[in-house]
Simulated scan of single mutants.
Amino acid sequence: MLVCFYVLLLLHITEGCRLEGNREIKPITAYTGGSVLLPCSCTDLHTKPDTFTWRKYTNDWVEISPESEQYKDRFQLVNDHSSGNLSLLISHLTEEDGGHYKCSLKESEYRDFRLTVKGCTLNQQTVTVTGYVGQSVLLPCSCSELQAKPHTFRWIFFKGSDPKEIFPKDQTNHYTDRVQLFNDHLPGNLSLLISHLTVEDGGWYRCKTSNTIDANVQLIIKDAPTRPSTSTPMIQTNSKQVVRDKTNPDPTEKDPIDIGIIISSGVVGVLLLLLLFGGVMYWKRRGQRGGQTEIGDGQTGQRTQQQDFTEPLNITVTSEPTYEAVHTQNDPEVLYAAINTQTKHKKAEEKDDVMYSTVVHSNTVSAAHTPVASGDTTVYASIKTN
């Protein structure tokens, strides 16, 4: 077993590094001003090739050396602490960096890359922009590829026939601390923001890159629009003018609409109180009357239940004594009452036409009309009981 292990190890050392994607052609697209990684590595990252080279085709294959002056600070190997990682990183790309690259170990082990670098091509345009004195304005300018950043660019202001650069250098000293780029983190956005505009800022501007296409912008400056003041509206009457400042109201002054609402609320409250008081008085009087009626009915019922034939019967009679015989005296169901017409009776003094009598119940067949001596005059009345 030990012999087999050593044999396999020897074969692995002899084989060395085998490239990942051997003899493939990989297309890669990048943008000017950015970076790109050309990946190249051994299938086993722990193996280290004896020799390897990066070359670029420019009429012929030219070896790339990161130590050379041409590629210094822009080309570097990225091994990521792995001996088998042979990738190449190119920074600050330019359009000239595009082309055909090759990572090779020997004639039979290599990998090709076709790198395309897109540069900044301005959108050719002529735009008219209006700005106002004291405010800010944005002069638009952008690359067709917003990820592409031009190697160099500048803004030029034409004062008459004399062009002057205002960004990145201010040759006029008129735009110092008033201009800045507004790219919104997009390298291809080259728009220029001008603050604190003056009348002298009006004119023609040009966004210029290294290529032959430019973007022209015409800036028109106008006076700042005046906004109508709404802080002092005027109310005019026949006698005088009243100026009311809504921004600084007088705390002692009340709005007529509020006063009207307060008065209306007070009147409604008084009316509700009056209605409530009247309802309480009505229900109180009604309750008293109902109580008197119930008391009267109760007293009447008690009198009716407690009335006995032996109690005096109040009967109203005329001043002259009369005798009324409804039935014969021999009727057993007839009672005879003796009515005293004496006007000097104790109860008759209170009411002249009320007389008092005594009713005697008799179950006998014989006539029960024996008069009761209660005064000078005796009147007989017959009463039938059922």
Results as ranks from 00 to 15, higher is better:
residue 308 D to M: 15
residue 172 T to R: 06
residue 257 I to H: 14
residue 331 D to A: 05
residue 61 W to P: 01
residue 110 Y to I: 00
residue 305 Q to A: 12
residue 11 L to W: 06
residue 237 T to V: 08
residue 68 S to P: 07
residue 30 A to R: 01
residue 126 T to R: 12
residue 13 I to V: 14
residue 262 I to Q: 15
residue 265 S to G: 09
residue 158 F to P: 01
residue 239 S to V: 02
residue 45 L to G: 08
residue 237 T to Y: 12
residue 298 G to I: 03
residue 164 K to L: 08
residue 383 I to V: 15
residue 240 K to H: 14
residue 193 L to Q: 06
residue 372 V to S: 04
residue 282 Y to R: 03
residue 115 L to W: 07
residue 374 S to R: 06
residue 14 T to M: 08
residue 146 L to A: 05
residue 364 T to D: 15
residue 292 Q to R: 14
residue 233 P to F: 08
residue 64 I to M: 10
residue 133 V to K: 01
residue 109 E to T: 02
residue 118 K to W: 08
residue 106 K to L: 00
residue 361 H to M: 07
residue 85 N to M: 06
residue 162 D to A: 13
residue 337 A to P: 00
residue 386 N to W: 09
residue 185 H to N: 15
residue 213 I to Q: 09
residue 125 Q to C: 06
residue 54 W to C: 03
residue 286 R to K: 15
residue 218 Q to W: 02
residue 183 N to A: 10
residue 137 V to H: 03
residue 139 L to G: 08
residue 176 T to R: 13
residue 317 V to Q: 07
residue 160 G to K: 05
residue 269 G to Y: 02
residue 313 L to K: 08
residue 145 E to I: 09
residue 135 Q to K: 14
residue 69 E to N: 13
residue 374 S to Q: 10
residue 181 L to W: 05
residue 356 Y to W: 11
residue 277 F to Q: 11
residue 108 S to H: 04
residue 362 S to W: 11
residue 55 R to S: 08
residue 80 D to K: 12
residue 137 V to M: 04
residue 213 I to M: 11
residue 87 S to C: 08
residue 87 S to Y: 06
residue 374 S to A: 09
residue 233 P to V: 13
residue 334 V to R: 05
residue 184 D to F: 04
residue 268 V to P: 00
residue 242 V to R: 07
residue 220 I to S: 04
residue 32 T to Y: 03
residue 326 V to P: 06
residue 128 T to E: 11
residue 342 Q to M: 07
residue 161 S to Y: 08
residue 322 T to M: 04
residue 247 T to D: 04
residue 337 A to E: 02
residue 343 T to L: 06
residue 224 A to H: 15
residue 166 I to M: 02
residue 108 S to I: 09
residue 188 G to W: 09
residue 21 G to D: 07
residue 151 H to F: 11
residue 227 R to Q: 14
residue 254 K to P: 00
residue 17 C to H: 03
residue 37 L to C: 02
residue 24 E to L: 11
residue 331 D to V: 00
residue 156 I to Q: 05
residue 9 L to T: 03
residue 325 A to K: 10
residue 41 S to W: 04
residue 131 G to N: 02
residue 349 E to W: 02
residue 142 S to M: 02
residue 5 F to P: 01
residue 342 Q to V: 05
residue 136 S to L: 11
residue 105 L to G: 00
residue 242 V to E: 08
residue 113 F to K: 05
residue 105 L to Q: 00
residue 69 E to C: 07
residue 181 L to Q: 09
residue 130 T to M: 07
residue 314 N to D: 06
residue 324 E to L: 09
residue 366 S to F: 13
residue 64 I to A: 01
residue 98 G to A: 12
residue 330 N to S: 10
residue 312 P to K: 05
residue 117 V to W: 08
residue 164 K to C: 04
residue 158 F to T: 04
residue 27 P to D: 13
residue 143 C to A: 03
residue 350 E to W: 05
residue 98 G to N: 03
residue 195 S to G: 04
residue 267 V to Y: 07
